[in-house]
Amino acid sequence: MEHYHMNLNLKVWRQKNNQSKGEFKLYRVENISSEMSFLEMFDVLNEQLIRDGEDPVTFDHDCREGICGACSMYINGKPHGPWQANTTCQLHMRAFKDGDTIVVEPWRANAFPVIKDLMVDRSAFDRIIQAGGYISVNTGNAVDGNALPIEKDKADSSFAAAMCIGCGACVAACKNSSAMLFLSAKVSHLALLPQGAPERKSRVMNMVAQMDKEGFGACTNTGACEATCPKEISISNIARLNQEYLMASLTAE
């Protein structure tokens, strides 16, 4: 792989706190290596800002290997930037070329209020899980792990849904700020397993109710969520969610 260096213009959303009005600010970073990650480029920018006596840009990040789900930048109009199946932290600068202008914004959704700059509050996701995204089994209640065989394809589909990292890119990508992909991933993960069966109906009803309460929008099946999901969570999970919800509503007592 050929390495190169580049100078870039950055248009970054700056917002002091939740109350203040935000605005774009223009910055220039120079001599950026194509081997850097996107967040390392932001590290360079922040070091520069601190040296110049300015406030560095605040953004969420932690593992920097694409699994914790903390990073959340809306880059050139796309959550997590231009690469497919990718998180911001795993986006590398070889995706850009010398002279590019890169626009960086926070996730935009009513249910994700901005905390500062590019950092938003995604605690709504935790509250959706609290509404039923679990199997009620106290520690010590379990039977032997192999007591209940599970068909491999079901276990695999469950795992594919459980891979969701809760980053919120699906919400940010959706024109309605719907959280259906996130919610459907959790409902599918648990509904596909026999252990999840006893609470199947109450789970889906309660989680959907919480999602609505948090102010997420409705799903109109545009598929933007699936296209942007860093873990390629399939939109077929939304179909399963709808089916689960319908079944639960029809048989509700």
Binding site: I135, A142, V143, G145, K152, A155, S158, A162, L193, Q195
Partner: peptide, 16 residues
């Protein structure tokens, strides 16, 4: 055992 009961989707063989 506990994790399986919680719904942790561990890798499985074809026999389940």
């Amino acid at each position: 055992d506990q994790c399986v009961a919680q719904g942790v989707p561990f890798a499985r063989e074809y026999g389940g």
